[in-house]
């Protein structure tokens, strides 16, 4: 196990009260694996990333949680617990590359800064050469010229490549990619995903891909974890979860995806789209029972009362879901 996260809970203090953004979330990512963390907006998936990186906003408080990264244990309830790892053991790719690059410094300066931290003592020439090499590795055209350019001179896809090159230079044990392709076009998205896979294979790190696109997860990830309203409802290998979703929410999420080759009614106005009815529960006050109870299509009486445990599914190690229907008496 390269990375494991245990029992992460995060609260946000808001004027309206305390919102429990995450409740006891645990994740495991093996070395060289990519885990897709999926969930809708408000499910807390970005909070997981921010808690790991120590980038949570001032009104957030980690109430419990430990992370084990390459054998070292970190108590996430302490402020800046993982500060030591930033830029050395952990790297992050954000949704908007414009915001993660500094607009007033050249690409080269920003890449070399990573190396100053990663490889102190190296001379400038080596650093520049390494930075250029990294840009070439992420297939950015004309790396020599890019080094002297500013972020605004590059397109969105090129900027994201620069951020990936930065991650490549820091050789992290864990790479967190938070919606890395949401701001990009489909053809660029495919290229960027290939670069992230390439980076993973080159340095053998674990990747946490945070996304709302099940398409991306099924195409590129090894394992999947489904987050809903701050709780992890299901986790397993992509293959198993897709073949036999253990939680009704996972099944409904898969049903909502519109495949490019799905059945099409001859009269286009007759085509319908799948919806998950209902709304997210109030994050300030968790209703008793299963968190998904109000929107579930197969719920029964006990669902409103009993908080389900994490039950294994089939004989497959690591595939489990929190649904009372999986409970074996």
């Amino acid at each position: 196990m390269a990375i494991s996260l245990r029992d992460l809970s995060v609260d946000y203090t808001l004027p309206q009260g305390t919102a429990h953004a995450l409740r006891g979330v645990s994740l495991d990512i093996r070395k060289g694996q990519m885990l897709g963390l999926v969930g809708e907006s408000g499910s807390g998936k970005s909070t997981v990333a921010f808690a790991l990186m120590g980038l949570l906003a001032n009104n957030a408080r980690v109430t419990s949680g430990t992370a084990t990264i390459e054998g070292r244990s970190f108590d996430l309830t302490k402020r800046n617990a993982t500060a030591d790892l930033r830029g050395r053991g952990m790297a992050m790719i954000f949704q908007d590359p414009m915001l993660s690059l500094n607009p007033v410094f050249t690409i080269g300066t920003q890449l070399c800064e990573v190396l100053r931290r990663r490889a102190p003592g190296s001379d400038r020439k080596t650093r520049v050469a390494m930075a250029q090499d990294a840009l070439a590795k992420v297939k950015l055209s004309n790396p020599q010229r890019r080094m002297n350019q500013y972020p605004h001179e590059l397109s969105g896809g090129m900027r994201q490549r620069v951020v990936i090159a930065m991650a490549l230079l820091s050789e992290p044990a864990l790479l967190i990619a938070d919606e890395p392709t949401t701001a990009l076009d489909v053809t660029v998205e495919a290229q960027i995903m290939r670069e992230i896979i390439g980076l993973r294979d080159r340095i053998g790190c674990a990747v946490l891909l945070i996304t709302h696109s099940l398409g991306l997860v099924t195409e590129y990830c090894d394992a999947i974890s489904v987050l809903y309203a701050g709780e992890k409802l299901e986790s397993g290998t992509v293959k198993e979860v897709q073949r036999q979703p253990g939680h009704p929410y996972t099944r409904m999420l898969f049903d909502c995806e519109v495949p490019i080759d799905c059945e099409r009614h001859a009269d286009a106005s007759e085509n319908r789209f799948t919806v998950i009815a209902g709304e997210l529960p109030d994050p300030r006050q968790r209703p008793p029972g299963c968190i998904f109870n109000g929107r579930c299509d197969v719920s029964f009486e006990d669902c409103a009362v009993i908080d389900p445990g994490d039950y294994p599914i089939g004989n497959h190690a690591g595939h489990s879901a929190r649904c009372l229907r999986l409970q074996t008496p």
Partner: peptide, 25 residues
Amino acid sequence: GSLFGSPQDAYTRELLAAWPSVSAA
């Protein structure tokens, strides 16, 4: 139907190929 079923232009084909889809298990 025909545009997506049998695209004639190379760019349309590229767009369709890049689409990440929830492929059947």
